[in-house]
Design a protein around this nucleic acid. Sequence first.
DNA 1: CAAATCTATTTGTCCTACAAATAGAAAAGC
DNA 2: GCTTTTCTATTTGTAGGACAAATAGATTTG
Lengths: 236, 236
Amino acid sequence: MTANEPQLNIHRQVVDQLGKMIVGGSLVPGDLLSSEEQLAEQLAVSRSALREAMKVLGAKGLIESRQKTGARVRERRFWHQLDAKVLEWRFATMPTKAFVAELIEMREIIEPAAAAAAAKKRDRDQLEAIGTAYQAMADASDRDAWAKADVEFHSAVLNAANNELMSSLFNVVATALHSFFQLSARAAVDFKYSLPQHFNVYDAIRKRSALQARAAMQRLVDDSRRHLRQSGGAAA
Amino acid sequence: MTANEPQLNIHRQVVDQLGKMIVGGSLVPGDLLSSEEQLAEQLAVSRSALREAMKVLGAKGLIESRQKTGARVRERRFWHQLDAKVLEWRFATMPTKAFVAELIEMREIIEPAAAAAAAKKRDRDQLEAIGTAYQAMADASDRDAWAKADVEFHSAVLNAANNELMSSLFNVVATALHSFFQLSARAAVDFKYSLPQHFNVYDAIRKRSALQARAAMQRLVDDSRRHLRQSGGAAA
DNA sequence: CAAATCTATTTGTCCTACAAATAGAAAAGC
DNA sequence: GCTTTTCTATTTGTAGGACAAATAGATTTG
């Protein structure tokens, strides 16, 4: 499968080299790469070829270029993310309902599994982060604060599952769902209805009960779907 | 979130435009794009900018360029795939065990869920495809034939789940696992041990029993993990 | 009819020259 | 002294030209 490529295109080689530097850790998120001119000279390629490689790395989410500043290594969570643009395109071209249904289905699969994994693998700090988010939800006095804490809670759970692949996948799915219909922009009254259920998730993860955590998250997710159904269609 | 971008870089605009043409369906997989020179003229941009856009589309998996032939629209299944390269890089840089564990965990989450979804949503043809793959497994006289049919079986199940997002995710995870340790390169004897379990999956999907399908696939996946554990480490 | 050769087309690479943006320094204004 | 404005140097963005490398398809040769 890889034996039939005698010599890779230069820009691909450059993608590989820079990619290794970035993913491998000799550059860390936030670091600035040398200028295109310097990099081109170091790697002994033309600026054109180098730029093509940089654009590819940008598309992969590894770096971000800005005029005058240069190219910067992006945060890890952007790295192997599904392409939001492609999701958008699909949204524009695919029957809306079917696509949103895919997203919802994925979310319903990932979250309970993540809760179960979190119950097994979470460490003290990760549990605390979930607890903090839960407290923020409990203290929320308006919908915005609630929504923010809610996002925080769920990503804390994902984080506690200690599986970056899962986290980044969830991140994309959740973001897409979020942008399609404003998840929490419904019922102004009783926005805290799911607080007890969130507590169950937290408590199960605290007790390291994978089964309970999965079940609690499952209920949460089921409720959420019911609400999504009610709020109906999506916004472009 | 999108309001602070007064004018997009040209190459990004081109990515958008061509992307829409491809994803939107005015071009279908297999179609040949016009030459770079022509496209550049049509879109009124320089060939440099166009090429950067083309490389990005290539990196996203939408097209594939070859000298003399031109750029061709790739099959859908490549479109919103996670980047296998990044997985490779991570594999090279991350403690092997932890990363493979992530992959295995993802697989164990996706497959049972997919089996359940397939039981609910499969159509006649999709069931037949699973059945055919099962038959091929039953008829397999050597390990290679078995391995091939096995892959076929699992992707048929994923396909029957009717969730492209899920399929493509699984595809990447399975491919990565496959390349890390040769899944079926172990025990030469009794390579068909899991045939009855595969039948259970097929049968549950046939009967449209989501619960049974999930459980059967879960057992399959558990067995598989046990075998992976036995066969130990990974190959670079 | 088959094999070798040629040719025209297309992508790959390199180069030069500016344009556009902007971080940071310098100058101006209060 | 402090803020605001202006300038400047650096970096990416875009354009366009030139040629190299690959190769599908036509042409020639055996």
